[in-house]
């Protein structure tokens, strides 16, 4: 280190200047992060304004999406987004929970790392791969074997049956939900695993000390403690599923319709934008698509913000109880 600063006032001034510049640079970069979010929000709001001004609340309640008559409504896209995400979570939560339990409690030490890494590799696979795999491998299997079985066994049932009626197309809301579930599992299981590991050993030991089985310790000690974090992880997965584009676009069927059956084709907000944006002619059409984007931003922002908040609380709790 150069101690010339102590001797030469000019050198000290140069150092101070560099310090100010560097500090300013880091501050500017940090503020840029804020500006980015703000910029995205403003840009979306600006682009969406014509559509909202024209259709007002009707935009949110109408299922019609007709470029011929220039009538647009977000309901079908929002329904598809929500429905596919709900299906994805319904499948992913139990599986992720199971994986987290297996990796933290059951797996022998030599198995933990490779299996853990393998599950996280699922997260590294780009979403377009999920899309083409879903279209070329999963959809035919679903069309030929799984969906006919679903229609035959679950279709005739009184209430639930409505969800499983209709022709087996292979693609549709259910298929998209399944692909999303596979995509989301690594995220939820990674967070759940981390969260399980923050549970203080002393709590678990006391459970075992009282004679509880492994499952009872997990269900009655670990889960209540980690509950907030688990919900945070689930909501992160939800946020991911809501915004996913490529995996869904291939298998959703691109139909701006709300079908009563899960086997029907539908659309999601991101799939609609991906498919139609570069071809939307007319300001109202383009603005409606950006409005869909604004809706998606709003929905995912709320979900992700809530999730991060919950995880933050758990982190603070973990740090303070150490």
């Amino acid at each position: 280190m150069n101690t010339a600063a102590a001797i030469d006032p000019r050198h000290a001034a140069g150092q101070r200047l560099r310090e100010r510049l560097f500090r300013a640079a880091t501050l500017v970069a940090a503020l840029l992060v804020l500006t980015l979010l703000g910029g995205v929000a403003v840009s979306l709001a600006q682009g969406a304004w014509p559509a909202f001004a024209h259709f007002k609340l009707h935009f949110l309640t109408s299922e019609v999406w007709n470029p011929v008559t220039d009538q647009y409504g977000a309901l079908a896209a929002v329904y598809g987004t929500v429905m596919t995400s709900v299906i994805a979570l319904a499948m992913a939560i139990p599986v992720s929970f199971g994986i987290a339990i297996f990796l933290t409690e059951l797996a022998p030490v030599w198995m933990k790392r490779p299996v853990g890494i393998a599950v996280e590799l699922l997260a590294a696979v780009p979403s377009i791969i999920y899309g083409i795999w879903g279209l070329f491998v999963l959809a035919p299997v679903l069309q030929r074997h799984v969906q006919p079985w679903l229609i035959d066994t679950l279709g005739p049932l009184p209430l639930v049956g409505r969800l499983f009626q209709g022709p087996p197309f292979g693609i549709g809301i259910l298929t998209a939900g399944i692909v999303l579930a596979i995509m989301v599992v690594p995220f939820i299981s990674a967070v759940t695993r981390d969260v399980f590991e923050t549970v203080p050993d002393v709590l678990k030991e006391s459970g075992y000390g009282l004679g509880a089985t492994t499952w009872e310790v997990i269900w009655q000690v670990v889960v209540p403690y980690a509950r907030t974090g688990m919900i945070g992880g689930i909501m992160l997965g939800l946020g991911r599923a809501l915004g996913e584009t490529m995996a869904v676009t291939f298998v959703i069927g691109n139909a701006h319709r709300i079908g009563s059956s899960l086997l029907a084709p539908g659309t999601t907000i991101s799939a609609a934008i991906a498919n139609e944006f570069t071809e939307a002619v007319g300001d109202l059409y383009t603005s409606s698509l950006v409005a869909l984007g604004a809706l998606l931003f709003l929905i995912t922002f709320t979900v992700i913000a809530a999730a991060r908040f919950m995880l933050l609380r758990l982190e603070r709790r973990a740090l303070s109880s150490v």
Binding site: A30, L31, L44, G239, G243, S270, F297
Partner: peptide, 28 residues
């Protein structure tokens, strides 16, 4: 407090749908 906000916003951006970023850069 500014840093806490920035961290929070950063985490939100981390999980934001990438198609939104595409729309943003298209407009920009």
């Amino acid at each position: 407090p500014v840093s806490s906000v920035i961290r929070f916003v950063n985490d939100v951006l981390l999980s934001a749908p990438s198609i939104i970023v595409g729309l943003f850069v298209y407009e920009l």
